[in-house]
Design a protein around this nucleic acid. Structure first.
Lengths: 112, 112
DNA sequence: AGATCGTGCAACCGATTAGTTGCATAACAA
DNA sequence: TTGTTATGCAACTAATCGGTTGCACGATCT
């Protein structure tokens, strides 16, 4: 998977209110199973499992099997990485826009 | 629209490769119309128009009518705001996890 | 061993999404 | 005024998404 695709799955994973709630709950509990989490959520356990799958694919969550239950916990690194990437993008684009603006002003000079 | 929903539309807008390409092209051109942009993209003009609509709803782009054409340009503020929000979320969750870990260690002490 | 509990798989459903094509209309150029 | 060009609106399609229910299997408790 390319880096761009990695960013995409993180963004897509976070662009869902249920998934954000799930992350928040998970941050409060520290570690929890799908069944436990589903109890505090407005959707079925199966829905929670699917969401955990998506979050896991995005690296935002990791699961560990303990006996018959599956314990999930949050991973915040991809979040931080994505935040940095976004910030970098913003400055990069701003820089380009500034350059274009400068060129336009130079054209103004020569026009006069 | 709540702040959370604002974040959501930005994330959803950015979670699409075509839209990111569009933003990138727009950052290079400074200002451009849907027709111009579509020429450099693998999709139809109408598809570009729809994407611009979504980006506009997210505040990532703004359009201005000039004669018969519609000129769009990038707005980077919502990007920066979302990046800050993400970063804040990450530290917030990390903090909570640390607290939980500390509590667990305290329990270990009293167990002995 | 038998009852219970959590997980995982699969089928299905309605809504949304990314894309298309076709057409009407407004602005500009000759 | 006539032809051209960019926009905007609408209808349609295929794929994806968030959610459900039903069921089978493996682990735990009594």
């Amino acid at each position: 998977m390319t880096r761009d695709q990695e960013r995409e799955v993180v963004l897509a994973a976070l662009a869902d209110a249920t998934r954000r709630l799930l992350m928040d709950l998970l941050a409060s509990h520290g570690e929890a199973s799908a069944t436990t989490l589903a109890a505090d959520m407005p959707v079925s356990r199966q829905a929670v499992v699917k969401h955990l799958g998506i979050l896991n694919a995005a690296g935002l969550v990791s699961g560990e099997r303990v006996g018959r239950e599956m314990r999930y916990k949050i991973r915040t690194e991809p979040l931080e990485a994505t935040a940095r990437w976004m910030s970098r993008l913003a400055t990069q684009w701003d820089k380009r826009l500034l350059t274009i603006k400068r060129l336009a002003e130079m054209d103004d000079e020569t026009d006069r």
